[in-house]
Write a protein that binds this DNA or RNA. Structure first.
Lengths: 199, 199
DNA sequence: TAAAATCCTTGACTTAAGTTAAGAAATTAT
DNA sequence: ATAATTTCTTAACTTAAGTCAAGGATTTTA
């Protein structure tokens, strides 16, 4: 399956993993041999709400959106993730319960992925991979906590400027109504806030 | 230092750790030998904002509050934690940067703690402890995400009923103005919501 | 057990966000 | 290139939370 992974993607993957754990060639080969490759279209769903996450994706490039639908039918964007990095619904994967969120590719991209079972046996066999898992879990926690604190500390206006400072790529690349729900407000409110802002 | 740890506390600790990793006596002895013991008064600060977290506490019993102060001076409670479990500012500990939050004991209690350095070398030496670290990081993420989603999905009223369902102990044991800021609203609003609710 | 501190409620008023609706602008797909 | 879709803005009105202020209830502490 590796035959189809381009040199470029391989490098991005290796580099990313190396940020967290120094990998001798040997270990890296073991890791990569557990990953598969997939081409993904813009707007394609990587994980569908209701299904239990059974893989972790590595995005070498591009970005993805996490969203779910409320009872009333409104769609809520809970997160964005810009490459490079690993994504899945960690809650669904860890608890092995149906996912609340959908994960959607925002652009056409190539992804690698590892199946849950294989990840678990890698964790079992390779202490270093377990460490990678710990470090990644710590990172997603920190990101989630930042998002949470923006609700506890700031008004919607302030959250919008926080977002512009903390994640300028979001504001540049992402439709306003997705950002609005990420900030917990309506698109109309965000539009007004942005207006107040520029005057 | 272990001489002073009561049998009861030791059992609670062992039981908790066992939930995550099966520990043969041997490994448990290694783990416990890295922990120290401390008596804590009600309202005592376990970690002070501005200082970098250098330990993880284990609470065998009791509960703690996480809070910080905004520029304007208002105090925000971002989290509560009920024993048994491990607490610290994970963000501060992981990044080794000054903590934003204070951690305060809500009742008189006994705690165990391990120093950051010792934890790191345990991670290094013991694959199983690294796993424990991964599993705990995953848990704190899941908790944080739930809290976050309550802001994205629900109105303050709904967050209050969510809180009553999800964490009834909070509502029973915690002053209303702490709960209010945990929900991202003023005490006055929470008081009114609660009133609407019972009529 | 009395004084002090903390905690909770209520009222009057202000403000900002939600709702509904319509249309303009921009992007995407054929 | 044009139609279709998606995205964004604006306006009028409603609603719920914030603010300020005061007083009562409860808990803590000396």
């Amino acid at each position: 399956m590796n035959d189809y992974i381009s040199e470029n993607i391989l490098n991005l993957f290796h580099e990313f993993v190396n940020r967290f754990i120094p990998t001798e060639e040997n270990l890296f080969d073991i890791i990569i041999s557990n990953f598969e490759y997939k081409k993904v279209a813009r707007k394609e769903i990587l994980l569908e709400a209701g299904k239990t996450a059974d893989k972790i994706f590595f995005l070498p490039e591009g970005f993805a959106r996490f969203y779910h639908t409320k009872k009333e039918g409104t769609e809520v964007t809970s997160d964005f993730y810009f490459a490079p990095g690993f994504i899945t619904s960690f809650t669904s994967l860890i608890e092995q319960k149906p996912s609340i969120v959908n994960i959607q590719a925002m652009v056409k991209m190539d992804v690698l992925f590892i199946k849950y079972k294989n990840l678990m046996s890698l964790y079992e066999k390779e202490h270093k991979v377990e460490r990678l898992g710990r470090l990644l879990a710590e990172q997603v926690f920190i990101t989630s906590e930042k998002h949470l604190l923006s609700f506890l500390n700031d008004t919607p206006q302030e959250r919008y400027s926080w977002l512009m400072n903390e994640y300028p790529e979001y504001v540049k690349n992402i439709p306003l109504h997705f950002l609005a729900s990420y900030l917990g407000i309506t698109p109309e409110s965000l539009s007004r806030i942005r207006n107040r802002y520029t005057k």
